[in-house]
Structures are given as C-alpha cells and as structure tokens.
Amino acid sequence: MPDAKWRVALLIYNGAWASTVFSSLELFHSANLRQPKDQQFHCDLLSSDNQPVQLYGGHSINGDTMIGEQSYDLIILAHYWGDFEQVTQQHPEIPPWLAQQYAQGARIAGINSGIFWAAEAGILNGGRATTYWRHLREFEQRYPDIQWQANQASVEHAGIYSSNGQNASMDLSLHLLEKFCGPSLAASLARDISFDSRRINDVNLINIAGFRQHRDLGIHRAQDWLDERYTESLELQHLAKQIGMSKRTFIRRFQKATGELPSRYLQRLRVEAAKHSLGNTQDSIKTIGMGVGYRDVSSFSKVFKSLTDVTPREFRSRLRPSHSHTTSK
C-alpha cells in the first residue's frame, strides 16, 4: 500500500459506541478506494493501553496501537453513553495526550458525547461545541466555560468539530472528508450513501446539514423555500409572509432555530452550490456566481471567501489545478 497522505486516529475506550467508530472508519476506507494509487488516509484504532476495549454493545476489541508519541492529523472521538466521571478515571492519560496532539496541529472531532474528551482536555475552553442532546445539560454544568450550541447539529471551532446525533455524525465525517480531500470526493461519497434524502441532488450541502436540526416547523418551511429558490433575489418580507410571520418575528425565530440570520443561511446555500459547480464543471467563475444568484463576480467572490477563507479561483485550483488556468475567467 502506498504511503497515506493523512494519519487518522479513531479513539476507542470502554463504553464507546462501535457504530460511531466503524461508520467513520468505513467512510475513510471508501475514500481510499476511490483513489487506490494515491491513498489519502491511514487509520488507526487507538486505545490508551494494550488491554481489550469493552464497547457499549458488549463486544470486546483491541486497538491497532496505543496512544504515545505518534502524531495524527485528525483524531475522532467515539460517542459514549455512561458515567463520564468513571471513564475519565479509567483513562486519565487521554486528556493530556489529546491536548498535546491539538497543540501539534491535529484536528479533533468529537462524535456526539465523544466531544467531552476535548472539553476534559481544556482545549474547548472559551469555544463553542454541541453534543448529544441527552448530555447537553450535564455538559453545561460540567464545562461552563464552553458555549454549548443546543440548536446546532454540527459545530466547528478552531479545528475542533462536534455533532449531536447519529445522522449529524455522518454529516460531520463527510464534512471532515471535504476538509481533507475537497468537495468533489466528499460529494461523491455523500451521493453513494444518500446521507440525507431531503437534499437537492445537484447541490452539495454537507455544510448546511447542521442547520436543519430543530423543531420549528415554520422555519423548516422557510428553509424548504430557500433550498428550492436560493438562486432568486430574497425579500425577507415576502418570505416571512409566505409562512405567516412578521419580518421581525421571522428573523428572530430563524436565528434562534438555526443559529444564523436568514441572509447568511442563503449565502451558505449559494456558496455550497457554487463549490459543487467549481469542482464538477468547467463553467467560468462569473457564470457560476451569476448562476447561484449573484449579480457580479466581485460580490460572489467576497461572500465565497468569507465562508471558505479562499477565493473561488483558489478553491478551484486546489481541486483541479490542471483546469484552473482555462476555466477561472
């Protein structure tokens, strides 16, 4: 097997949920199979010692290796259901090791309650995160220096990622694949596993998935409207009227449910659609920008960079360097 580009650790410990370990492992394996001559990931099942790990479902497995001096690019923390105080006493070496890995540049992904390891390590202090809803109140009390985002299915803060449910954990894994390998590969895998049947087929909405995890039916209707008409001009007054709200109430409820203003959510929809086109078509940047609802390329580029940290031209060149000089006009 050729050398892998990225090293990934899937941390296992007593009480971890096997489904949140192996679903991520198989997704990264699928990414490798798409590019067999250019392996993207080397994945280790990582345990704190050489003893068998007792998973939540009752099965016992051994890690591939133990935590030590090896550095990783990404560390995935499995979901856990049990006594957090007890498990931290069983594995006291995990939090300082995790803090060291983060300081060395590793990205940390806590699947659902797995994020408590990052909180325990102190690397989330002053930051934002989400977690499985049943554990949210407990974590708010245990880690008061963290802003817990109850309405967000996925949260990213300073290279630390978190999710709050089984579907959200798959979205999170796909989001991480996009971060490491680009949107084209991630979108291809997302289509194969049909991770959310509500998504529009021709739009790569991995980064939008977290904004649907709420119970406000009126805002869901507004999001349905925006998902279908994101290329059109938005009049908040008109949209609010469509769902029977005043403009002021609509903006307040939308932000409470999703964590975003309606206008910013619309920008995210447009940018995700543009990213898909940049990676999968040869259309010019101007054509793509106008196609997702912007009147000029300058406005499109400004919004695109504010959400991705790169310009559309830079984004395309990273995905398709051999095409960038002919398609970026």
Rank of each mutant, 00 (worst) to 15 (best):
R107Q: 15
M66D: 03
H29Q: 14
H29M: 08
Y132Q: 09
E232K: 10
S324P: 00
L226Q: 07
D83T: 13
S301N: 01
G259N: 13
R320G: 00
K305N: 09
D83P: 13
Q100G: 14
L239F: 01
P36H: 03
L176P: 11
G259H: 13
F22G: 13
R320S: 03
Q282W: 05
W133Q: 11
V21R: 01
W225S: 02
N125R: 11
I206D: 06
I160P: 09
S169K: 10
Q149P: 09
N204A: 14
A118E: 09
P312M: 01
Q104F: 10
S23R: 09
N125V: 10
L11T: 14
M1C: 04
P95N: 11
Q267M: 05
D171G: 15
K286Y: 14
A273R: 00
S299D: 11
R34E: 11
E156T: 15
D44I: 02
N201I: 04
R215E: 13
Q40V: 06
L205M: 04
L307M: 09
E260M: 15
R212V: 04
S263M: 04
H276S: 02
A150S: 15
A99G: 09
S298Q: 11
K241R: 05
L136Q: 09
D73T: 12
Q40Y: 05
L205S: 05
A9N: 05
P2Q: 09
L269M: 08
S113Y: 10
Q86E: 15
S113F: 12
A106Q: 12
S301Q: 07
Y102R: 15
Q35I: 05
Y161D: 08
N201P: 01
Q40G: 07
V155Q: 10
Q40C: 07
F28C: 03
W225I: 05
H325G: 05
D196A: 15
S188M: 02
I285N: 08
T249N: 11
H135K: 08
K256Q: 06
M1P: 08
G15T: 08
Y80E: 13
W148H: 01
I115F: 04
D38E: 06
Y72N: 11
S277L: 10
W117Y: 11
I206S: 08
Q223P: 01
R313P: 00
E314T: 00
I219Y: 05
E228L: 02
P92Q: 15
Q223E: 07
G126N: 11
R212P: 02
A78R: 04
L33N: 11
N207R: 14
S317M: 05
I208N: 06
H220F: 06
F211I: 08
A153L: 04
W17T: 13
S23V: 11
S169G: 12
D44L: 00
H157V: 09
A222P: 01
R320L: 04
I285R: 06
S23T: 14
S48R: 09
L98S: 15
G82M: 12
R316I: 03
H175S: 12
N201Q: 05
L239G: 00
I108D: 12
S71R: 08
S71P: 03
D64P: 01
R137H: 13
P95E: 10
L261H: 09
P92I: 15
K275D: 03
